[in-house]
Amino acid sequence: MKKKLLAGLLTIAMTAAALTGCGNGGSSDSAQEGSDGWPQKAVTFVCPWSAGGDTDFNIRTLAKYLEKELDATITIVNTTGGGGSVASNDVKNGKNDGYTFLAFDSAIALNKASGVTDFGYEAFDPVAMYAKSTGELIVVRADYPVDTVQELVDYSKEHPGEVKFAANTGGTSYYAATKLKEAGADFNIVNSGSSSERVAALLGNHIDVSINSMGVVEQYLQTGELKILGNMATEVPEAYSDYPLVKDEGIDLAYDLVYNLLAPKGTDSAIVEKLSAAIEKVVNENADYAEEIKTAYGQTPFVVSGDDMMQAFQAEDDMYMEYADEFQSAN
């Protein structure tokens, strides 16, 4: 008698389990059929930097509007570490069923050039470059005895190894440091952690030069505690036209920090297309989105996809790979 009861209960249990569990399991199959049904469950964007930073802000803002556009739930997960390589490795090796994407930035090329990873954008199916930073800035304390980048380079020559320049392996800051070295600077290149940690270190007199984006330092410019020597972008951004470009001083240092979204290789191209189109629509047409990125970071809408995007990725890759040997030996 007991055995029958047991069997009966187990059957009910299994059925219940099957019904609740399989409802979800089934959908991941249909995604392979094409993008008609996509997305059927929550999509995850993995961000390699911690919350609060500029990449994180950009992807969260984009996701907010994409959710309405695609009628989907998008979850942002911050997986930090290894200069971004932990996240990029995770996504690269993970499922390519169209529900996980990597929300990175130009650092992907730098990771490859520095040897932090042995792959770059080519290991993924890029979806879009969906935003561009107003430019990374060379920041020093307001009372520091230099006012232009050239003066900084000269100053460092006069005090070799004394000027502490914060740069992270595998990051754009390292590229900046290398280029300046080419221009003759003699810095003591040190590691100072994340963007906000660098600002703290700068304020506290622990380092002398830091690379940051405007969002983090804006208020300090107003209080007069920090000053900007130059903007390393390739062109003057609308919002911050007062700050000189480093390249205008004649120094060969200019790069753009671009935020991108990448899919693991092998993701259904129909899904990539659909997502890419949705991103284009949001960036180009959504006024609220434009307003938000302007208020927070002074950014203007920017998006590149398709072939243009692949070319841009390659160009970025080439630019940084040029210094691959330099990066890896300096380590």
């Binding site: 389990a17 099957a18 609740t20 569990g21 409802g23 979800n24 399991g25 089934g26 991941s28 739930t73």
Partner: peptide, 19 residues
């Protein structure tokens, strides 16, 4: 637990091959 966390809170839990 499954209902509360996977459905209620939207936490991702392992999905097997069978479900």
């Amino acid at each position: 637990v499954y209902l509360i966390f996977a459905k209620g809170f939207g936490l991702t839990l392992p999905e097997g091959l069978i479900g």
